[in-house]
Structure formats: structure tokens, C-alpha cells
Design a protein around this nucleic acid. Structure first.
Lengths: 149, 149
DNA sequence: CTCCTAAATGAGAATTATTCCTATTTGGCT
DNA sequence: AGCCAAATAGGAATAATTCTCATTTAGGAG
């Protein structure tokens, strides 16, 4: 991790009122590097390479805090383990049931469409944090990416 | 359960190529009665009242089979336990993070909008089974329903 | 209607995912 | 440099789900 990245992550944590500890910096960094929405265990594996002393329990606790602080998004899945996403831009998920992969799908036009649609709506007794479109299905060739054009 | 309902559920199972066993009939029936997207354990509690011999393990197995046969939908959640839905009509979910409640939201206009949008799109290497919009947030008064108009 | 067999079940052990506990350590402030 | 509330490591405990295997059952064949 470059000095610049390191400082940036420290700032993100401080701004959120969280102590910039090694486990937190390392977990957030790994999550920012990844686009595959890893689980706590996967993150622990990766973090352990650089910081072998970080425990799995801490990774769980760190993730909980990061989600609470809105620095990290917790992805909705159909079971298995919890999955996380450090990309907070509005985007969709392509959820491949057979491979458990969750691929991002960016579509500004679609975002606009949904945003406008709900702009007209009155939602009572509920504070919307986000609206997420999930495209569910099965990946045909597990080795290749899914593309939408 | 009326005789008619019973026969109907038996037919659904047969048509899907599944033996119409008591655990299966009971679980599917309970799920059809419910609109709160229960977990396996909740379903087991309910089924147990009528059929005390049905084991929790069987409820898990039955649900797996029903999902496989597309008689039941498995809802995406942010952890906790797996949740199920016997309503296969296209609809959205309002997911209340604080109460773990998942409320249905029917909106034919929105369904059309999304359907049309993706009709134009080319999706490669993927077989879409469904596209689900999830409205995430926090319920203000946990005792009342959320409404969207 | 009874028999047969593959499939499904019940009961409980085993596994996986996550949270909790407590003594120790550490980041951020003075 | 020293303090202290907050965070951590390590491991125990709990929750959710799957697995194992002996027994039962649904539904087709005779």
C-alpha cells in the first residue's frame, strides 16, 4: 500500500470517528482493492498475509463497524456467508447463483430511471438508505465474465 | 387446510416431479399462508403444530427441493438466516434492516419499466432467472406497516 | 389391493459462520 | 512520555445449516 493510500484510508476512518487501527486499515484496504465482494473469512486470509496477527474475530468486528459507519456496504445474498463491498457508488449486482459470484454492473441510465421513479413516490414509516437492483441467474461459463450491453 | 387446498398443493408437487410427502405439503402450505418471508426455523415451528413429527432437518431439505423446483423463491438478505417466499409473482421487497422484516411491494408499473429496460439489453454468458428490486432502509415505527404510494 | 423400491424422513452428530468473553494492547490525547 | 477508553487476540460459545444413516413412505407395477 502506498503512503498516499494509507493516509487516505486513515482519514476515512478518522472522519467516521473510528480509531485508525491496523486491522481496520488493512481490512478496508483489502476490500477497496477487491471487486468480488469477499466474505469476512476471505478478507481475513488476505489481510493475514501482511498482518498475520489480525484475528478472524477482529475482521468480523471491523466489518461490523465499517458497515455501521457507512464506509462499507453489506451485500444481500441468498445465504452462505455475509459479503461486503467498499464501492459506495450506486450500482447493481449480477448474482450468479451457481458460482456464488457477485459481479458489479454500472448503468447510470438505469440508476436515473429508478431514482426518478421513486422520486415521485411517497414512502411512509421508512427511511430508505438505498435501492438495489439485483440481477439473479446462472453464469454459463464460470471462467468468463458476464456482460450487459 | 381445506381439501381443495390440499389437492392443489399435491398437484403442484407432482407437476414438479416431487413426491407429495407430508413434510413437503405442510411446509409449502405454511409458506403460502405467510407473507412475512419466514426462515426454516419459523416454518418448522408452524408446521410442528399440525405435524409434530416433522424434523427441522427435513424442513431444510424440503425448502431446498422446493427452491430447486422453482416452487419457492429464496430471498436475498444481509445475513442472519435464509428466508423464503412462496409468492412467485414479480414483486419487490422492502427490507427493513433494523427489524429484519421483508415486506412485499407490488408495483406493476415498475415491473414494466424494468422489464422493458432489460428487454433492450444483451446479456452474455448468463441466464437471468429474475430481476429483483430491493428497497433497503429502516422502519420508523416497527409496529406499523410501510406504505408506498 | 398388496408388494416393491427408490426416495424421503427423523434424530442427532458434524460442520460452518458468526458472536461473545476476557485479559492484554494500542491509538490518540495531553 | 504517560494515560485511558476503545480495540484487539485468542479461544469458547452460539446460531444456522448440512450431513449421516437406519427407518419409513409414496406411488408405480403386478
Amino acid at each position: 500500500m502506498t503512503e498516499k493510500t494509507y493516509q487516505h484510508i486513515k482519514e476515512l476512518l478518522s472522519e467516521a470517528g473510528l480509531k485508525a487501527t491496523h486491522p481496520r486499515i488493512a481490512v478496508l484496504h483489502e476490500l477497496m482493492l477487491s471487486d468480488e465482494h469477499p466474505s469476512a473469512e476471505q478478507l481475513h486470509d488476505r489481510v493475514s498475509r501482511q498482518y498475520p496477527s489480525v484475528s478472524l474475530g477482529s475482521v468480523y468486528r471491523v466489518l461490523e463497524k465499517l458497515v455501521e459507519a457507512d464506509l462499507v456496504y453489506q451485500v444481500a445474498t441468498r445465504g452462505g456467508s455475509k459479503r461486503y463491498d467498499a464501492n459506495l457508488e450506486q450500482h447493481c449486482h449480477i448474482y450468479s447463483i451457481n458460482t456464488e459470484e457477485i459481479q458489479d454492473y454500472y448503468d447510470p441510465e438505469l440508476n436515473e430511471l429508478i431514482k426518478n421513479y421513486f422520486h415521485e413516490k411517497q414512502v411512509s414509516n421508512f427511511k430508505i438508505t438505498d435501492i438495489k437492483l439485483q440481477i439473479n441467474g446462472e453464469k454459463r461459463d464460470p471462467k468468463s465474465k458476464v456482460t450487459i450491453v
